[in-house]
Design a protein around this nucleic acid. Structure first.
Lengths: 251, 251
DNA sequence: CGCTTACTTGAGTCTGGTCAAACGGGGTGG
DNA sequence: CCACCCCGTTTGACCAGACTCAAGTAAGCG
């Protein structure tokens, strides 16, 4: 198996971490980079549609996403699915499984994805040796909590069209934050089934709501996805202020 | 102002923290207790119906709940309210405001509440000096995330009666975990309006759903609250497995 | 070329929302 | 002490947003 002594076969060594290139992410000290490089176990590249983490599993790894999109979801025994959030580059996933024992949700990719792999068991040494990084882990978890609060508000209290408007604005806002569109009109790789399962709506009703936004020219449909044309309009329709993130940590 | 040198006026010094009495919470080393005692700024007792933390505020404090119930919620500009979770003894609140700048949600009490007050600015020294406690903070945050995922699944994908069943079972399960009922039939101090705002339902429909559970003898109404009679029944109705927590950290 | 996956659309139904009114207990001011 | 009021709850009538069922289109793929 690949050893981390030389890291020779790494496509993305920590010193040249692709996330560092984006000015969204905070700079790491060289000591931190050195630690991360030892903490890192390898890289994982998965296809579109792959299940990276499965509910109920005990996976000994943690991951940071380097490239690609995905979503995090839960299932009811009879198959009803709820997508609870989306994951993007810079997101740390699998932490909850590390802390609670087994995974309480699954994560599936929406595009090919590259992940940075860490050892669950080494997490405590990160806490011991790098308080700043430990703080960042907590920051990331608190941010996730914050997004979930917003999602819950949306599903619980917004109407169908407001929910959809919120979701689209939210995804574009997050995607822009990590430079996923770089200037191009924001394109989302999610099907209407994904949207329905995020908003707590049926597929049919989602489609009808979707059409309304297309008619209003806030949205253009695309094969298995859509292009968002008017983020401002969507935000005001959803009565969403947006989240103000300037720089953020990552692991 | 009260100084923490003597802590003379504290009703609940850390050495005799009331949470330590419950075997749910993990034991702290005496070094940890010493640190917590310095980290602690004081105690806060608030009435029922008080707003402990307000959305948009920049509160320089963090709190751990020692006694009492409350709920955490968000508002839409037009007044629609979504309760995102409930808070109980042992819960750490205000952390998100500490990390993100200003609070993204509010917290209101459902009973008189006593809180342990910490200084936001000192959090980093906790991370530096006590990796174990820092880890616990992350653990608590991840647990909150886990509960939110469950709530979102519920609001998004369960029917009205399933949602109500889930909520009641969830609250009883959490309350038992921290010894809130100690053997007595579990009594919840929430009005139907709170339930409605948690489940994303209207008050009227909540009442009709509530009645169905009363008719099924799973629930007994009470002045501004209810007694849960059949937690097992509620869990199976909601198709909820329950969460298995043995011991947990606290701060 | 047939199969599968995603999207559309219409018809009919039902869960859950809105409006309105009334009840009951606890607190309060006259 | 009592009338009044407020809050939480309850119920009925009616309405609408969202669901299910069903069928059809279009694009991509082996």
């Amino acid at each position: 198996m690949a050893q981390q002594s030389a890291h020779s076969e790494r496509k993305y060594p920590c010193e040249r971490c692709p996330l560092q290139r984006s000015k969204t992410f905070r700079d790491m000290t060289s000591r931190e980079i050195g630690f991360m490089s030892r903490f890192k176990r390898g890289e994982l590249a998965v296809d579109k549609g792959a299940i990276v983490l499965a509910e109920g599993a005990r996976n000994p790894h943690l991951y940071t996403i380097l490239f690609g999109w995905g979503f995090r979801y839960k299932l009811l025994p009879d198959g009803r699915r709820q997508i609870v959030n989306y994951v993007m580059p810079g997101d740390l996933i699998g932490l909850q499984g590390s802390l609670m024992g087994e995974m309480q949700h699954s994560i599936e990719t929406l595009s090919p994805m590259t992940l940075c792999v860490f050892e669950r068991g080494e997490l405590m040494s990160l806490y011991r040796e790098h308080a700043d990084l430990a703080f960042d882990v907590t920051w990331l978890t608190a941010r996730e909590e914050c997004m979930l609060d917003e999602n819950l508000l949306s599903v619980g209290r917004r109407t169908a069209i407001e929910r959809l408007a919120y979701l689209l604005a939210f995804l574009v806002s997050r995607g822009r934050g990590v430079g996923l569109f770089n200037g191009a009109p924001p394109q989302l790789p999610i099907t209407q089934q994904h949207i329905a399962d995020t908003l707590g709506l049926s597929l049919v009703h989602t489609n009808k709501t979707f059409r309304k936004l297309v008619d209003r020219k806030m949205l253009r449909p695309l094969d298995r996805g859509c292009v968002v044309l008017d983020v401002e309009g969507l935000m005001s329709l959803a009565r969403w202020e947006g989240s103000n993130e300037d720089t953020r940590p990552f692991i």
